[in-house]
Amino acid sequence: MTIEKINHPYLTAIKRTDLSVPVRYLMQHSLLRGRILDFGCGFGYDTDELKRRGYDIIGYDYYYRPEYPEGKFDTIFCVYVLNVLEPYAQAEVMMNVSNLLSPKGTAYFAVRRDIKEVGFRFHAIYREYTYQCNVRLPFLSLECNSSYELYRYNHFNKLPRKKGETCSFCNLSRSVEVICETATCVAFYDGYPVSPGHALIIPKRHVASYFDLTNHEREAMNIMLQYVKQKIDERYHPDGYNIGINVNEAAGQSVFHVHMHLIPRYKGDVKNPKGGVRGVIPGKHIV
């Protein structure tokens, strides 16, 4: 008989009596600035204690404090959350954090470094399955020891410029609005939109053709596509979408760094929308 293992990450929340070690580090190094969000706060001790000490902070947790935060935040920290989530849920957390972060803000991800066995474990007290894994992020590491590692994240277009880099997407304009990021991909609103809400999704790795992406990069872009569509729906309320990727000059590619267009469509934006993406070749779109 096979037992289906369903992850219950909320069982890992701890009822603290003191600030978590990563949050103490952030406080001691004066990194808790402006409007602050504790993303995945669990029972909320860090949130409540920092508020008691005078910080402008709120906490969000899918299970224990489910009111989703509004607006943008100058500082976001996410402590010991990613280690208990499976890959799809990890990506969702990173997209939410990056979406909630103000353009000049900074986020901090703390992950455990004492996990010896990756996979599902049967919780001794709650008698339910919880998942745990090791997480490594391509961000600046501020602190790393046998217990935990603390990463600093800033929006992709706010990172220091690489000397000699000529790709306009690798050197993404600091003025564009980043919608969300994961470890491997970033989405932002097009600087020359075809329609209101026109967004681009790119891999962070410089690669010209969609067909040269790794399986992981393609899957990450598809996951991000769903998230970006949701954010455009919330802001612009379009009536439809076109999704497209140009590959090679003959197909119209002019920036040779893979980019997926998500173009919102609105009733009446063209006289006759029949054919949709078939219209890339004039006269061939009516069937």
Rank of each mutant, 00 (worst) to 15 (best):
126 Y>L: 02
31 L>D: 02
65 R>A: 14
112 R>E: 13
214 T>I: 01
171 N>E: 15
61 D>N: 14
220 A>V: 03
112 R>K: 15
26 L>H: 10
81 V>P: 00
27 M>K: 15
104 K>L: 06
202 I>R: 06
237 H>R: 15
182 T>R: 02
37 L>E: 04
64 Y>I: 11
98 S>R: 07
79 V>S: 08
203 P>T: 03
262 L>K: 13
233 D>K: 12
189 Y>L: 13
286 I>H: 09
26 L>I: 08
186 V>L: 12
285 H>T: 06
31 L>F: 05
25 Y>L: 02
198 H>G: 11
110 A>K: 00
140 L>H: 13
43 F>Y: 15
210 Y>H: 03
199 A>V: 06
84 V>F: 07
124 A>G: 04
156 F>I: 07
65 R>G: 01
54 G>W: 12
54 G>H: 09
167 C>Q: 12
88 Y>A: 12
146 S>V: 00
86 E>D: 11
35 R>N: 14
142 L>Y: 11
92 E>Q: 13
8 H>N: 15
57 I>G: 10
268 G>Y: 06
260 M>G: 02
244 G>W: 01
147 S>P: 00
253 Q>A: 13
199 A>N: 09
144 C>A: 08
116 K>V: 09
202 I>H: 08
21 V>P: 00
138 P>E: 08
83 N>P: 00
176 V>L: 02
104 K>D: 15
89 A>T: 00
141 S>Y: 01
187 A>N: 11
38 D>Y: 01
245 I>Q: 07
104 K>N: 13
80 Y>I: 02
32 L>C: 13
